[in-house]
Design a protein around this nucleic acid. Sequence first.
DNA 1: GCCGAGCCTTTTTTT
DNA 2: AAGGCTCGGC
Length: 672
Amino acid sequence: MKVAFGMGMLNPQQREAVMRIDGPVLILAGAGTGKTRTITARMSYMVERGIPPQNILAVTFTNKAATEMRERVIDMVPDGLGRKIVLGTFHAFCVRLLREHAERLGYKKNWTIYTQNEQTSLLKRVIVRLMGKDESYDAAKAQSRISSAKNSGVSLGDPKENTEAAIMEAYQSEMRALNAMDFDDLLILGVQLLEEHEDIRDLIRYRHTHVMVDEFQDTNSLQMRLLNAIVGPPYNVCVVGDDDQSIYGWRGADITNILEFERFFPDPHVIKLEENYRSTTPILHTANSLIKNNAGRRPKTLWSKNPGNDFVRLLITNDDKEESEMIGREIEKAHFQDKTPFEDFAVLFRTNDQSRILEQQFRQRRIPYRVIGARSFFDRREIKDICAYLTVLHNPHDDINLLRILNTPTRGIGNTTAELAREESIQRGCSIFVVLCNPDFQRRMPEKTRNSIRNFIDLLNKYAEAARSPHVHLGKMTEQLMVESGYIDFLKKQAKEPDEFIAWENGLKSLVDQLNGYHERSSKEGLAGFLDEISLNDEREDRDKDDITKKSGVCLITMHASKGLEFPVVYLPGVENGLLPHKRSWDEGRVDEERRLFYVGITRARQKLTLSYVRWRLKYGERIAQLPSPFLKELDRKYIEERDYAKESKAPKTAEQNKSFISGLRAMMSEE
DNA sequence: GCCGAGCCTTTTTTT
DNA sequence: AAGGCTCGGC
């Protein structure tokens, strides 16, 4: 038999995982044990064995993981067949399924996806309507309660007695009326479709004879049910995971899915990967000493042949500013003295707002960096506005998005009118758009308003028609829409400084770029396809786009988002009580999960790992005293070197510090 | 209906 | 620190 490409690089366990393609397989793969290499090799092997690539379904948990796997599969599978493998997140899978069959569940074909923001603003409205203006109920809280209720399948109780349940009920019926689905609905409805419609289930099972799930420890019960529906006998299903890296419990991830895999699929073949190819012994030793404090895990110990040259370091500084200075200075030094490329460094933090001070620091030192995650491109106001336009063109009955653009740019349809229209829409049980179009309603408005409404409707109709045309060039259309609607002029007027307008304009340009990219790639799904893509893929923005540093530089990333990645040099700032473990997790009894999160962070490092904590940290503009994380006591100190930076910086300034002072000045001046 | 000033809360993590 | 929201003057 021909040996599969890359097979020679696999160890015996990995090879077994690759070659056992029939029946249920559970791969327990510790951090850095070559998991991705193994599963891509497995797919490649299947294709070589004659399984049509389009029959292979690979599910990942995040878009980032999907993208990365796609790249590696394309590299590995010959003849470009890797492209044909069906690969994506559970959510993306459901979207595809529902685009085809949502009508079977009573949705209209042009249903839209509601992102978290849209969900929240809908909930705000629901809450106001239900409880009156003065009564305040936290929409974000309601949202998370609703989400966990949906994911766990546990009802919130009787809407007549329980406020939350009432909110949820109203929310659900509004969503239904808006012909919209939120992220949880995608899974729920996907499951429903497969469980209740045998023909569709058969179709899917026929389509996907071999299924793989990555990061299986992060699946929640809905996703498990979905998997159960997708995979039928003879259960050619392979899941890969590591219970020690389960960090999405707050999203309903159910660690028992991996601990009790046998319950779902009969007699699985279990393969353990324990040899770590990523990190040095000091790093792994430290990681093992931490994670063994968790109860109820599948015991395993990572080991490595690489003794390494460096101890793990634990550094203490006075405050967060010093901490970021220390990181910046060290990276600068390593880069210039040892020629370590900036791409080798990563800074992993618990919360997104920790990145701000690091960014400042790096900008001052001219250290190129990229921020992964952080604020979404699609959270930007100008992007949200234009996307709202596009969404309404696709589905005019989407009230939330319609309200967003109704008076953006200001066109004389203010709050009073909007309220009237909304009220009437509730009474008549139709969408706001229908109310606005109603001549009777228009007649009741003052003349000025009436004209504004008519112009607005004409604008929408004109572009909706354009968008429906099969030959439409979406990019050009959107550009025209932005001008014709007066949006561009509106932005110009709104901007307090010219720079602000330029930033907005750039945002819109890259949105148009994305539309053009989509157009060239696959315009057959039209506007709907693009909208699906953006709400699902929600690509996070690289903040310094105009910099040459686009895809390179030091990586700033949350620990959550870092899962699956690795870097030669890793910094973990903010190892403090209240931050790691996060205060909220204490209150909610999720400390074990925070420990796993810390474990994930530690095991990202290949050669050098630096933990640090500070005595004072700025939060909401206030200086707060910090204590070291209790996790630090759990770490075996055998390979840890501790240094108190705060004391050292009181010593006279070294030449090096002066140099960085100067480079700081230089940066400040050129920023002016 | 529009706009600015000041107040207030905020994000823990992602689809 | 910063963006969202409310209120009051126009």
